[in-house]
Design a protein around this nucleic acid. Structure first.
Lengths: 224, 224
DNA sequence: CAATCAGTCAAGCTACTGATTGAATGAAGA
DNA sequence: TCTTCATTCAATCAGTAGCTTGACTGATTG
């Protein structure tokens, strides 16, 4: 007979194994933005449908995502346990102990990450002041599924075209899908080069939502 | 060229994979009690030396443990990143979303866990009051490597023999290796049956230490 | 009711993981 | 130095995971 302790470790290990695959972590990050069809998730991650479907089922069995049917599509969204918290702990551990992670981030974004990001708490305070403009650089459909209240949505691809919408005299805080989402890093780089006063939010939308802070929905995008 | 994002996910996944194995989690819990030789760890987990050694090296590569040589033994101890925090997040997620975990715990300890454990914070307060006796039921050698300050060490195996050392008029709080360590569950069961007023500490020694709280070392065991 | 579309399932292949065994290292003691 | 002991390394093998392909299912649309 197996001891209950060993069985519990086995349960923990099973969950950890589910997170032990890059593709699944990527799917999870996309699902954390809001409900998405298998096809869309496959597209976003560059996986084949069948492959994405299989990974999503593994994630579902472990409770990291839930699914529901809508007509002929299957929609996956984040599960309701403390998933974001677990991913956050993993990220923090990785940042602490893997030089590679810090290295990749700073090599690739050449030093941008060293420009002190804004914490969630600090942002909340400054939003009350009105001393900051909040910029969501995710694609429109992700924005529509949920965003920080009062955020202006300019997808990264449209940024050049829509510079006029951004103030030069107020500080901008950009965010996107999560702490390692490339979009906000690049938005900061691009806008900073053009003389804007812009910082990056430390986290992304899923962390904000998981913290129980208010979330805006489609249609209330702030326009200047 | 791989995107940096994918590479970061790959890094995270690699760490998660290391935790994705029951034996390694068990080794990790034992290493979290203090420095231990490979032989001892193999003994404690029931693995062969070679196997334990290999798992320990996997854990070390991921930074979850560190090792140092002492004569002809190799001593492994917990790494210094936020390892306990990550394991805690994994545990909390498991408790939330896996009925199995809750089931195993409550089936096996038939309802004992429902006897509200004492939180770390509550314990700190009550230790100041002096309204509680703290009981460490781990083996002597683990106690010697570190324990909560003022704790009385009676290894679970000696409990019957040393009942006289325990007060009947003061509440006892028992703890051991971690939230799922069998020892404290069973100590509570045994002593409760004999009429003692005893509760379980929610966490174990590693969590206490990781929280930055003071730790006692060999020789200051409190005697009645 | 057939056709279509989104997703899942099943089979097969490759690559990796974990366990075992026995040989190789490296420090300590005779 | 030779021996012993604790640990690691190297080789091997069974079992599993991930990806691909093509067939299947279940809901909508013509």
């Amino acid at each position: 007979m197996k001891s209950p302790k060993i069985e519990i470790f086995e349960q923990f290990a099973e969950l950890a194994r589910v997170l032990g695959q890059g593709n699944r972590l990527e799917l999870l990050e996309h699902a954390a933005q809001g409900e998405r069809s298998v096809e869309r998730l496959a597209q976003l991650t560059g996986l084949s449908m069948a492959n994405a479907s299989q990974h999503l089922q593994v994630l579902r069995r472990a409770g990291f995502v839930r699914s529901r049917r809508d007509g002929k599509r299957m929609l996956y969204r984040l599960g309701d346990g403390p998933v974001i918290e677990l991913l956050g702990a993993l990220r923090r551990y990785a940042e602490h102990s893997r030089a590679e992670v810090r290295g990749i981030v700073s090599d690739y974004f050449n030093g941008l990450d060293s420009l002190e990001p804004v914490s969630r708490e600090a942002l909340v305070k400054r939003l009350d002041d009105g001393s900051v403009v909040l910029l969501d650089v995710r694609p429109e459909d992700e924005f529509a599924l949920g965003h920080l209240p009062g955020a202006l949505n300019i997808p990264f691809a449209d940024l050049e075209r829509r510079l006029a919408e951004l103030p030069k005299d107020t500080q901008i805080v950009a965010y996107c899908r999560g702490p390692y989402c490339v979009l906000s890093f690049e938005a900061v780089a691009a806008l900073r080069a053009k003389g804007y006063d812009i910082k990056r939010l430390e986290d992304g939308f899923p962390e904000w939502k998981a913290a129980g802070l208010p979330v805006g929905v489609a249609g209330d995008s702030r326009l200047p």
